[in-house]
Nucleic acid binder design. Structure first.
Length: 569
RNA sequence: GAUUUCGUAGCUCAGCUGGUAGAGCACAACACUUUUAAUGUUGGGGUCCUGGGUUCGAAUCCCAGCGGAAUCACCA
């Protein structure tokens, strides 16, 4: 962020002033009566129809007494045709010659009235009869051009700039807008599906006294009035299950979750998880529910259940393959985890290059083996089912095998995108599971769960048998929009804080005796008063005269004595 | 957090073994009444990320810092 305005920014500020001198408000307040949007006109084009449109001016092709320009609104672009003598039917041609040709810039919001017509080259256009400035743009947008072959020239492509200034990214990169529209559609389709089934969208606390429902490092914060430590939620699970205990049959939440862990192209400190809980169902029912949901989402968002993800085709058409984690490990790691002790598992982990630490229990070791050898193998949607009990402290024990739980994870393209259980509703078993988590905590596993006494109390009052599902929304969005990084599906991904130079004020300079006329310019030349006072007299003179020449200022340079007085503190 | 790599005009990028800072688009001026990456002529625009060091001389070489990206670790 440069302190001094660029040449183009100064020119735009000058244009703004000239507009005001012509009596034109560059930021008018009143409603502009838009009657049509670009896409609407494009799809339902009626020759000679009167339209009133608004948007950003995104390109101008001037040809003397007439011009073509691009008007971009939220739905797309429309070409407009501006003719001097039709825009200015009287002798006064200022609106065309001055305002349109010279004082408007790319990025300005304008409103137009006119009628639809087709140009000689067959382009649908609006013939402009009235033009209104709606908002002046003071910073030049990157000009991205697309030629006839669809090739993009001078793309705005620097990821840092795109993420920090997403508003610019969205204006100039149509594909980015499309990606986010798809993201919005994904959650809309999911909501519709849940609502049609009669489930209720609810909101539960983000500030939680005990961060539960997942294994992760939480963010901590402090409530002043209550003088208590609070955590940003890592998952909404335990609160949603309290609502099932409270008598709702089906509840879901699109939950922003927060985890104090690394940032990379698949992880952002805040991310969205959708969790849904349905009473009187089990994980087998939930598998069918999940595959039907995803099939529908893919179909409605992408127009097809088969989706391109990187170099692979993934088909979300139901039903999906189901395989137990034991069979998966048997198949891809040639090792049977059934009945193995912790020592035996740790030994096997070592032979396949997994580093084993004291804090890793049986569940963690099995998870490591699966992650190292199996996960990548499942490209098409696959339910991995029946996880060992140690890995799943909130899951009901398997109906046929007390060492397993009724849990599935859905793996797509080698990564988990959903996780579901038959929920553990036995309060005594739940308490025992929490206690074994506490033992892991004592062994040094900083992601093991804390005991949530109030949640246990809710289970003790009774929770019906329930199936629960969590879906990683960001990851699902990455798949359905074929994006490789989570930053591309988050409007504002987390970045390191941007450093802004503290701008000096003109009054700072006036305070040391600089006259007002020069003070307003010195703020553009120096970062601070001290910055200026670090100079020698000659250097100061040189800087000022360079600036004066560059900006074509009419101000006279103060004499040496005056300048010297500025330098003395 | 570690390693690799990048940081030059508003944007996208050149800039070789160290020797006065370059292009296209954008911008300004002029011309042009159906163009569409409009065109033609002319012109302006730079803290070469920041701070040190080496050198007669650094965008370039070295060190440190800041920021981004990729890979790895943790995790979803």
């Amino acid at each position: 962020m440069s302190v001094v305005l660029s040449e183009q920014e100064i020119l735009r500020r000058n244009s703004l002033q000239k507009l005001q001198e012509l009596g034109i408000d560059p930021y008018p307040a009143e409603t502009f009566p838009v009657s049509h949007w670009a896409k609407q006109v494009e799809e339902n084009f009626v020759e000679k129809q009167e339209v009133c449109m608004a948007g950003r001016l995104m390109g101008v092709r001037l040809m003397g007494k007439a011009a073509f320009a691009e008007l971009q609104d939220s739905t797309g672009r429309m070409q407009i045709y501006v003719n001097r003598d039709e825009l200015c039917p009287t002798e006064d041609k200022t609106l065309y010659n001055e305002v349109f040709k010279k004082l408007l810039d790319i990025g300005d919001f304008i409103g137009i009235k006119g009628y639809l017509f087709t140009t000689q080259t067959g382009e649908k256009s609006v013939h402009v009869s009235e033009l209104t400035l709606l908002a002046k743009s003071l910073k030049p947008l990157p000009v991205v051009k697309i030629d006839q072959d669809g090739k993009v020239h001078d793309a705005f492509s620097d990821p840092e700039l795109r993420y920090r200034q997403r508003y610019v990214d969205l204006v100039v990169n149509e594909k980015v807008r499309e990606t986010f529209k798809k993201r919005i559609k994904i959650t809309q389709v999911m909501r519709d599906y849940f609502n049609q089934n009669g489930y209720l969208e609810v909101e539960t606390p983000i500030l939680q006294p005990i961060p539960g429902g997942a294994a992760a490092k939480p963010f901590t914060t402090h409530h002043n009035a209550l003088d208590m430590e609070l955590y940003l939620r890592i998952a909404p699970e335990l609160y949603l299950k309290r609502l099932i205990a409270g008598g709702f049959d089906g509840v879901y939440e699109f939950a922003k979750n927060f985890r104090n862990e690394g940032v990379d192209r698949t992880h952002n400190p805040e991310f969205t998880g959708m969790e849904i809980y349905v009473a009187y169902k089990d994980y087998i029912w939930m598998m069918a529910f999940t595959e039907n949901l995803l099939e529908r989402v893919a179909q409605e968002v992408c127009g097809n259940t088969a989706v391109q993800i990187g170099d692979k085709q993934v088909d979300f058409k139901a039903p999906y393959l189901r395989i137990s984690i034991r069979d998966a490990i048997l198949k891809y790691a040639h090792f049977d985890i059934e009945g193995k002790t912790r020592t035996e598992l740790a030994q096997f982990c070592s032979t396949i290059g997994i580093e084993v630490t004291e804090s890793m229990g049986v569940g963690k070791l099995i998870d490591e083996i699966f992650g190292a050898k199996c996960e990548k193998q499942f490209v098409q949607p696959t339910f991995i089912i029946d996880y060992p009990v140690e890995m799943s402290p909130l899951t009901k024990k398997h109906r046929n095998n007390p060492n397993l739980t009724e849990r599935f994870e859905l793996i797509v393209n080698g990564k988990e995108i959903a996780n579901a259980y038959t929920e553990l509703n036995d309060p005594l078993d739940q308490r025992a599971r929490f206690e074994s988590q506490m033992q892991l905590l004592e062994k040094g596993d900083d992601e093991a769960m804390f005991i949530d006494q109030d949640f246990l109390r809710a289970l003790e009052y009774g929770m019906p048998p329930t199936a629960g599902l969590g879906i990683g929304i960001d990851r699902l969005c990455m798949y359905l929009t074929n994006q490789e990084s989570i930053q591309e599906v988050l409007f504002f991904p987390q970045l390191r804080a941007e450093k802004w130079a503290a701008l000096p004020k003109a009054s700072d300079f006036e305070a040391i005796g600089v006259d007002a006329d020069w003070a307003e310019h010195l703020v553009h030349i120096f970062k601070s008063v001290e910055d200026m006072q670090g100079l020698k007299l000659g250097q100061l003179q040189q800087k000022l005269s360079e600036y004066r020449k560059k900006q074509k200022l009419e101000l006279t340079l103060p004499n040496s004595e005056v300048l010297q007085s500025w330098l003395i503190v």
